Amino acid sequence: MKSAKNKFTLAELADSVVSENRLTPEERKLADIELAEARRKNKERTTEDQQMHAKVLQLRFLKEDSV
């Protein structure tokens, strides 16, 4: 459904944002390994204060969701 504000339908907007995964199984496995390595390096760089802050925020959001 097009509106006065949007010249695109919801389906057209979704198609423009969501991309197809055209990786072979081998490429997918390599991409998964690279992503895991990047996440590990990022986690190593976080300080103890940043980790504590992230845990506090997580608890806060969990509490808000349960209410």
Rank of each mutant, 00 (worst) to 15 (best):
V18T: 08
E20K: 11
E48F: 09
M52V: 06
S16D: 08
A36M: 03
E64V: 13
A54V: 07
D32E: 13
L59S: 15
A14C: 08
V67F: 14
R39A: 02
K29D: 04
D15S: 12
E12G: 05
R45A: 05
L59Q: 15
E12T: 05
D49W: 12
S19R: 14
F61I: 14
A38L: 05
V17C: 09
E44P: 02
L23A: 06
P25F: 01
T9P: 01
I33D: 07
E12V: 10
V17W: 02
D32R: 12
R22M: 06
L30I: 11
S66A: 15
L35F: 11
N21A: 02
A38S: 09
R45V: 00
R40F: 00
M1Y: 01
N6W: 00
E37K: 10
L13F: 07
N42C: 08
E20H: 07
L62T: 12
V18F: 12
R22D: 05
Q50T: 04
L30M: 13
R39D: 01
T46A: 12
R40M: 02
R40G: 01
P25Q: 03
E34F: 00
L10T: 06
R45Q: 12
L23K: 11
T46G: 06
E34K: 10
L30H: 08
E27I: 05
A36E: 03
A4E: 00
L62P: 01
V67M: 14
K29Q: 09
A31G: 03
M52S: 13
E37S: 10
F61P: 03
N6C: 01
K43P: 00
L13R: 14
L30A: 13
V18K: 12
T47Q: 03
N6R: 12
L59T: 15
R28M: 08
E44S: 09
R22Q: 11
E20V: 09
T46Q: 15
S19F: 10
L35S: 10
K7S: 06
S19W: 08
F61K: 15
L62C: 14
K2Q: 03
S19I: 04
K63N: 14
L57Q: 14
A31K: 13
